[in-house]
């Protein structure tokens, strides 16, 4: 292509995209005028008028819509942070087990990954909520004395009270993402040359210690980038909470939109809050990545 041709193609492309955007925005304006809605964010300061089943900060239906959305955002953040921690533990254990020289461990890990990844997450969440947690007896079970008390009303771990909805989302998301993380970890372990394993085994170092001090430090640079994309997936998937009635960001936005009819504004706010969540996860992963890579270089 000559320079001139290239220039023309780019101009045409840009013109086409701008025209499309123009038509869409024009349609939107026409529709908004026709329905008499217009664009406005004043509804944010009006009282929410609906209750939120769980909230980290004090909230009442008479509080403002914006405050309600913040509660939803905090709920999302809470369940995402907890699930990330639990999924990582599950994934690392299962990933390490799949490369263990104990056939029982590797078979179990293979079963876990093969089963969980072929079943839709939404179905799994419904299972955890309706079958596993709502199926518990209403009288609290206390298998470890006062440490853990479980019933179909609430889960109490060491004095910390969790709702059944939160527990279902937490377990469902962690088990689902854990299977993907296991695959990531397995890939990272496979990237470490076989000789490294043989070397620490021949030195008489135990399986666990060798994994921790020889293999993992070398596998981490391959694992971390894929891990952060799994975390982002987990954050996106947490919006399925709405199916089990956990008041996350998406569920609260959905209620707010139905109450006010402000679909476009509500949607924009939802996108913005999600962007913020993504940036948070990405930022912390980058810091972690940096720390790990630097440490690896020093030793």
């Amino acid at each position: 292509m000559t320079r001139r041709q290239r220039w023309w193609i780019q101009v045409l492309l840009l013109a086409a995209v701008l025209t499309l955007a123009g038509i869409l925005i024009n349609n939107l304006t026409v529709n908004l005028i026709r329905t008499g809605l217009g664009l406005s964010f004043r509804w944010l300061s009006r009282p929410a008028g609906f209750a939120i089943s769980e909230h980290l900060l004090p909230f009442q239906p008479s509080d403002s819509m914006a405050w309600a959305l913040l509660m939803g955002w905090l709920n999302s953040l809470r369940v995402i942070a907890c699930s990330i921690a639990l999924a990582t533990v599950l994934g690392v254990v299962a990933g390490a087990a799949s490369r263990s020289n104990n056939p029982l461990f590797s078979a179990l890990a293979g079963l876990y990954v093969g089963l969980i990844r072929q079943i839709p997450l939404l179905l799994q969440l419904l299972f955890w909520y309706f079958v596993a947690f709502l199926g518990l007896p209403s009288e609290p079970l206390a298998p470890l004395g006062a440490l853990i008390r479980i019933s179909n009303q609430s889960i109490n771990v060491m004095g910390l009270n969790l709702s059944v909805e939160f527990a279902a989302v937490l377990v469902g998301l962690s088990v689902f993402t854990g299977a993907s993380i296991a695959e990531v970890v397995r890939g990272g372990l496979d990237a470490v040359p076989r000789g490294q394993w043989e070397a620490f085994r021949s030195l008489g170092i135990g399986e666990g210690l060798g994994l921790k001090s020889v293999v993992l430090p070398q596998a981490l640079p391959a694992i971390l980038p894929a891990l952060s994309s799994q975390y982002l997936n987990l954050a996106k998937n947490s919006t399925l909470s709405i199916a089990v009635g956990y008041a996350d960001l998406y569920a609260v936005s959905d209620t707010a939109i139905t109450q006010t009819g402000r679909a476009i504004e509500g949607f924009l706010l939802l996108l913005l809050s999600f962007l913020l969540l993504n940036l948070l996860i990405n930022g912390s992963m980058q810091i972690l990545n940096h720390a790990v890579l630097n440490k690896g270089q020093r030793t």
Partner: peptide, 16 residues
């Protein structure tokens, strides 16, 4: 998230 896109398709697409 996918559900937001689907929601957009159901509720907002007709507006555009």
């Amino acid at each position: 998230p996918l559900i937001a896109v689907l929601f957009f398709g159901q509720l907002l697409l007709p507006l555009f």
